Simulated scan of single mutants.
Amino acid sequence: MENYKEALTPMPTNCYMDADTTGVVVDQTNYRGLIGSLLYLTASRPNIMFVVCLCARFQSNRNESHLKAAKRILKYLKGTSIVGLWYPSHSPIQLIGYFDSDFAGCKLDRKSTSGTCHLLGSSLISWHNKKQACVALSIAEAEYIVVGSYCA
């Protein structure tokens, strides 16, 4: 992939990955190896966590469209090799937390996705992104679910 053009984002904004039953099945070993390597990389690159976990959902039912999405992550990483976590020594000691959720973001089962992050001063120290366990019936309910998990 040395000659590929770099991608500006790890996933297009208009892309919805789903169980592609009509596509061409790709090699299981190569796809799982690629996803495993990307999951290892998320320890230092939290900005790719969501899209890597999205691709990991389809390891047992992987098709060409899923491999294309995983390769786009590699194109994004090629263009952002100098990006990473930064922990300045002069940052104030103040704990700040943020949370958010979408409403019925998964097109397969209509479950919402929740995300939280914690900063100590200006440094990211913890993040969490997970599909919610139950189906929310409104945006407010999806937000209540993420608030409960955030407080826990």
Rank of each mutant, 00 (worst) to 15 (best):
Y76M: 02
N129S: 13
D100C: 08
T113E: 02
Y98F: 14
L77S: 01
D109R: 08
I73T: 02
S89M: 02
L108Q: 14
K78A: 07
S101T: 11
W127D: 07
K68M: 06
A104Q: 13
S114Y: 00
Y76G: 01
T80R: 04
K68S: 06
A69M: 05
S138R: 02
D102G: 15
K131V: 09
G97E: 04
Y87H: 15
W86K: 12
K130N: 09
D102L: 04
H90N: 15
T113D: 02
L95A: 15
A69I: 02
S112W: 00
L67W: 01
S81K: 13
D109M: 11
D100S: 07
N129I: 11
K71T: 01
E141F: 03
P92E: 14
K78E: 01
S138M: 05
L119H: 12
K78D: 07
L119G: 04
D100R: 07
A70R: 00
C106G: 06
H90S: 15
L95M: 15
I96S: 08
C106P: 01
E143Y: 02
S126N: 12
L77P: 02
Q132I: 07
S89V: 15
S81L: 11
S112Y: 00
G105W: 03
T113Q: 01
L137F: 04
S101L: 04
P88A: 11
S112K: 04
T80N: 11
A140R: 05
A104F: 11
D102I: 13
S126P: 04
L67P: 01
S126Q: 10
K130Y: 05
I93E: 14
L95N: 06
G84H: 10
S112E: 01
G121D: 07
Y98K: 10
L120E: 10
I125N: 05
L108R: 12
L95T: 15
K68I: 04
I93R: 08
I125T: 11
K111V: 06
G121Y: 00
H118T: 06
I73N: 00
S81N: 09
A140H: 05
T116I: 10
H66D: 12
T116N: 11
H66M: 09
A142E: 02
S81H: 11
A70L: 01
H128F: 08
Q94C: 05
V83S: 14
I73Q: 00
G105P: 07
H118W: 06
V83F: 14
Y76E: 03
T113C: 01
H90T: 14
S89N: 15
A70G: 00
A140I: 08
F99R: 10
L85E: 03
T116H: 08
